[in-house]
Simulated assay, not measured.
Amino acid sequence: MEIEPFSLPLSRPLSTASGTIEEREGFLVRLEYGGVTGVGEATPLPGWTESYGACHEALARAPDLAREEDWGVVLSETSEPAARHALALALADARAKVDNQPLYRYLGNERLVRRVPVNATIGDMDREDTVEMARAAVEEGFDCIKVKVGARSVDADVARLRAVREAVGDGVALRADANGAWDREQAERALHELADLDLAYVEQPLPADDVAGHSGLRENGVPIALDESLASRQVADVLAAEAADYLVLKPMALGGPDRARQAARSARQAGVTPVVSTTVDAVVARTAAVHVAAAIQEVPACGLATAEWLAEDLGPDPAPVADGECEVPQAKGLGVREVG
Score class of each variant (00 low, 15 high):
residue 220 N to Q: 14
residue 184 R to M: 15
residue 15 S to W: 04
residue 117 P to E: 10
residue 28 L to S: 03
residue 16 T to S: 00
residue 330 Q to M: 08
residue 202 V to K: 05
residue 319 A to S: 15
residue 62 A to T: 01
residue 257 P to D: 04
residue 100 N to D: 08
residue 108 G to A: 11
residue 224 I to W: 03
residue 259 R to I: 09
residue 250 K to Q: 02
residue 245 D to F: 10
residue 143 D to P: 05
residue 25 E to W: 03
residue 323 D to Y: 03
residue 310 L to H: 05
residue 79 S to W: 09
residue 285 A to R: 09
residue 263 A to T: 02
residue 107 L to T: 08
residue 227 D to R: 06
residue 116 V to W: 02
residue 3 I to G: 14
residue 276 V to F: 11
residue 241 A to S: 01
residue 194 L to H: 00
residue 85 H to P: 06
residue 325 E to K: 15
residue 317 D to H: 09
residue 15 S to N: 06
residue 300 P to V: 00
residue 105 R to V: 05
residue 152 R to F: 13
residue 75 L to A: 07
residue 263 A to V: 08
residue 290 V to E: 07
residue 208 A to I: 05
residue 121 T to H: 11
residue 152 R to E: 13
residue 202 V to S: 06
residue 194 L to Q: 04
residue 135 R to H: 09
residue 61 R to K: 15
residue 226 L to Q: 01
residue 38 G to Q: 04
residue 273 T to G: 03
residue 185 E to I: 10
residue 144 C to V: 08
residue 228 E to L: 12
residue 210 D to T: 10
residue 104 Y to W: 11
residue 297 Q to C: 08
residue 31 L to N: 07
residue 39 V to H: 08
residue 77 E to H: 14
residue 49 T to S: 11
residue 295 A to V: 06
residue 142 F to P: 12
residue 92 A to Q: 07
residue 84 R to M: 05
residue 267 A to P: 06
residue 94 A to S: 07
residue 163 A to H: 09
residue 246 Y to V: 14
residue 176 A to T: 01
residue 240 A to F: 01
residue 93 D to L: 07
residue 188 E to T: 11
residue 84 R to T: 04
residue 51 S to V: 08
residue 288 A to R: 10
residue 327 E to K: 15
residue 138 V to R: 12
residue 288 A to T: 05
residue 83 A to L: 11
residue 163 A to V: 08
residue 216 G to E: 05
residue 40 G to V: 07
residue 90 A to E: 00
residue 92 A to D: 01
residue 324 G to E: 00
residue 119 N to S: 13
residue 2 E to W: 03
residue 313 D to H: 06
residue 54 A to F: 11
residue 113 V to K: 12
residue 75 L to E: 02
residue 251 P to K: 10
residue 170 D to Y: 12
residue 95 R to D: 12
residue 161 L to G: 13
residue 11 S to P: 01
residue 245 D to I: 05
residue 204 Q to A: 07
residue 69 E to S: 15
residue 7 S to M: 09
residue 164 V to T: 10
residue 299 V to H: 03
residue 80 E to V: 12
residue 211 V to W: 04
residue 264 A to L: 04
residue 270 A to W: 09
residue 106 Y to M: 08
residue 38 G to R: 10
residue 181 A to N: 04
residue 233 R to K: 13
residue 112 L to I: 09
residue 268 R to F: 02
residue 285 A to G: 10
residue 108 G to L: 08
residue 260 A to Q: 06
residue 254 L to C: 00
residue 272 V to A: 14
residue 61 R to E: 01
residue 131 V to P: 14
residue 1 M to W: 09
residue 293 A to E: 06
residue 107 L to S: 11
residue 285 A to M: 02
residue 123 G to S: 10
residue 55 C to I: 13
residue 272 V to Q: 09
residue 96 A to K: 11
residue 206 L to Y: 01
residue 286 R to V: 04
residue 99 D to R: 15
residue 18 S to F: 11
residue 114 R to P: 05
residue 225 A to K: 01
residue 96 A to Y: 03
residue 225 A to N: 02
residue 136 A to N: 06
residue 313 D to T: 14
residue 304 L to N: 03
residue 85 H to M: 13
residue 296 I to T: 01
residue 265 R to D: 12
residue 233 R to P: 05
residue 293 A to W: 04
